[in-house]
Write a protein that binds this DNA or RNA. Structure first.
Lengths: 172, 172
DNA sequence: GGAAATCATTTTAGGCTTAAAACAATTCGG
DNA sequence: CCGAATTGTTTTAAGCCTAAAATGATTTCC
């Protein structure tokens, strides 16, 4: 419910309601702050992955998805999970197969489908990177109390739901 | 202070302390959720900018920086503000000058420096896009109460500070 | 004054990313 | 069954992005 004061400039000099855009500055500031946090952390992680393991963040992310799926995933699954385009995954997988980290085969039951999984090498390297990665994240969030973490989790869950709803409204 | 139960598996069968990696699963989950939220919203904004105005998000972001600086900015300033590489800005600016949205000139007092500003066209188009953009953001965050927004702002400020501190520790 | 360090920007090489179109295989509806 | 939609993937064209090296201008410090 908007306060009376918020309505003052919705009335013109003749005290007739006019179309005045609502003020959404707070949400805008929130979005910019969210983006800043993510960019900051992402850049840091990207740099450390490159320095320590000479690997890119997208490759690491892709391997992380596969590590959770011992039986492999289809390219579409990966693309949905990573929230990136299909063509993007095609290229990433190409390079990771080339470097021996991924195994790729056409599904027996549906010849459209490509199933990819980590190779032994891929899994071993990922585990090694993931262990260190986890300590970086812990360090980056070190000044948040457990309560802060819980509260952020809760609010971000709410944010995600809100954004998904809004996206669905536009593209039903 | 860790609870006693957290220490149980830090003792091996002979009741001697062993090196056990700490559990940072919560922070990791928090980071993934933060990333998911940002990716979701960013993708939505990117798509809407393209559909409605045929403009990319990086171009919009760059114009947003310049809109706040009527006297223009140097490329370095822009690069720092946007948290992207210098070379990246060079390319973006090139295309925006080409399309008539930006004006670029060498500083009178320091011939290393390039000062860029919005042209009349650039400013007009940006204002038009920004107004609509603000409503998208408001809609994406619509299910958050004002209190949620405040609380999220607070926690993200804390997160940003923590991450900056951690980044500074590595790269002093 | 001049060499050395610093600073702002550009270039380079490689990879990431997207939207849209194209292709290929499967499923669905008559 | 068979044509039409759908689905999974790849290709294409364009743009974004980075780190590192190169270039050019300015400042610093003997």
């Amino acid at each position: 419910m908007p306060a009376v004061s918020d309505c003052i400039n919705m009335l013109d000099s003749e005290t007739k309601a006019v179309e005045t855009p609502e003020d959404h500055a707070e949400e805008l500031r929130l979005w910019l702050r969210l983006l800043t946090c993510t960019t900051l952390i992402e850049g840091e992680v990207r740099g450390r992955l490159r320095q320590r393991f000479d690997v890119t963040l997208p490759r690491f992310d892709l391997m992380a998805q596969l590590d959770k799926a011992p039986d492999g995933m289809t390219l579409s699954d990966v693309s949905k999970r990573m929230m990136v385009s299909n063509g993007n995954v095609t290229g990433l997988v190409e390079r990771l197969v080339e470097s021996g980290h991924l195994d790729r085969r056409t599904s027996e039951t549906d010849r459209r489908v490509q199933v990819i999984r980590l190779t032994k090498l891929g899994r071993a390297e990922f585990r090694r990177m993931a262990a260190e990665h986890e300590t970086w994240i812990a360090d980056l969030f070190a000044d948040l109390s457990p309560k802060d973490v819980r509260e952020l989790m809760r609010l971000l869950a709410k944010t995600k739901a809100s954004a998904q709803k809004s996206a669905a409204r536009r593209r039903p």
